[in-house]
Amino acid sequence: MTVQRLFFALFAVLFALAFSGENARAQSDEPIHVIVNNSLSITNTTLAEVKRIFRKEATAISGVRVVPINAPRTKPLRAAFVQRAYGTSVQDELATWEKLKITNGLQPPTEIDNTLKAVFSVKNGISYCFQSDYKPGTAKIILTL
């Protein structure tokens, strides 16, 4: 019984540390790059356009069709992006998507763990990543939040 308690306590501490780190990253000021596939001719954009793209209100930037890719809803990157772009929480964003699914039949953007890889791979991909995760050459930065 004592050993089990120790394991449980250890697990709880590790869990808390892990998530405190994640949350800290989500709440940090580390810049977020909005990135697109290298093949796209887009060089820059505005926050308003990015918001529309990730809500699927619009499908193109400067006439170039893009495919939004979200980070998983459980990741700090998603929380940081939603907070900076929309000023809201992931919970609120999911509630909005529940409404859009019903109203317009819209499906939320695909969620992929490594957004950088996804943008590299998807021809019209647009996504975002923390500055420290960005690798030069793999994608094009069009906005920094």
Binding site: P109, I112, K117, S121
Partner: peptide, 10 residues
């Protein structure tokens, strides 16, 4: 990346 490219469906 190239290996994963075939697995991403948006």
């Amino acid at each position: 990346l190239i290996t994963d490219a075939m697995q991403i469906e948006t």
